[in-house]
Amino acid sequence: MSFKDIQADFIEAIRRPDLPCPHGIAPQRMGVYRELFFNNVSGFVNSGFPVLKSLYGEAQWQAQLRQFFTEHDCQNPLFIGIAGEFLAFLSARERQVDEPPFLLELAHYEWLELVVATAMEQGDEAAFDDTALAQQAYLDARLGLASHARVAQYHFEVEKISPQYQPDTPLPSPCYFCLYRDSDDEVSFLKLNPMTAQLLAVLEANTGIKYIELLQKMQALYPNFDGQQLREGIAQVLGQMAVRGVVVQKLQ
């Protein structure tokens, strides 16, 4: 048996307590390894999904974690990576009988908060300073969505979900969010109207775009809107988002 095969058997035995211990490893020592690995993974998931965890009893939540640990083939051992793997696990499995209809959207929202909180600043972008904001420099600059900002669409009010509020049915129409890090480096969110969400989505997909190009794309998406109102509305939204650091200037 090759060393790679030995490693694979060892990892599988850690993930599955029902399997016999690998040759040469005492059951007591193997139990320590299993407990250590499971507790580490559980700690990462618990930290990344506190609201989701609060909706379950302890035994039920531990069963979910054990299933994830045993059945899901994690490819990323880092904290943010394990959170993403847990989201992938929830998305891929069959829906459970007692699973709330908002579970996947809530899990995605909590994962996105983590993504925003840990996003690295990019060297090719810069926030608009007070002088640039006063001069409306964002109307001439190459624009982009900040590396620590994300736009998302949900069918449940995920930001309100708690043990006391668990909706049974989706909203009549989707709700849109922008999650971003504020000036205090805290994760914040904005509820967006559909047009603002579309504007930020266009920015995200066309990094380095200029205001005139952005206006043209929005006019194509909203041909029935009055041109003057659309120009003024886009300029106003860009200013508001630039103040919050959501819209930044791309330097390259």
Rank of each mutant, 00 (worst) to 15 (best):
H72V: 07
P194H: 07
P50V: 04
Q153Y: 00
A83K: 10
G43V: 10
S2M: 01
D182H: 04
T169Q: 14
V115C: 07
I14S: 09
K191C: 09
D130P: 00
A8L: 13
Y165G: 00
V115E: 12
Q236W: 05
T196L: 08
V97L: 11
M195N: 05
G57F: 08
L139E: 07
Q236I: 01
G31R: 08
E94D: 15
V202A: 08
Q62H: 12
V243M: 07
I11Q: 14
K191R: 14
K160Q: 15
Q62I: 00
L251P: 05
V187L: 02
V246F: 09
L139A: 07
G84E: 06
S91A: 14
G123I: 05
Q249K: 15
G233I: 01
F86P: 04
F44I: 15
G57I: 07
L200F: 04
P100G: 09
A141G: 08
Q236R: 11
L190F: 00
F225G: 00
Y180G: 07
L87I: 01
Q60F: 11
A146G: 06
N40M: 15
Q60T: 14
P101K: 09
P174C: 05
D182N: 15
N46T: 06
P17D: 14
K191I: 12
A117P: 00
V116F: 08
A134R: 14
Y176P: 03
S147K: 09
I212S: 11
G43C: 07
E157I: 06
E232N: 13
E159F: 03
L143Q: 10
N46G: 02
T207H: 10
L238H: 03
M241C: 11
N40E: 15
A235Q: 05
F3G: 01
F177D: 02
P170K: 06
A13R: 09
P77E: 11
E213I: 00
F69W: 02
L55S: 12
R66S: 13
Y180N: 06
H108I: 00
R16C: 10
G57M: 05
A132K: 07
I6M: 04
I212C: 03
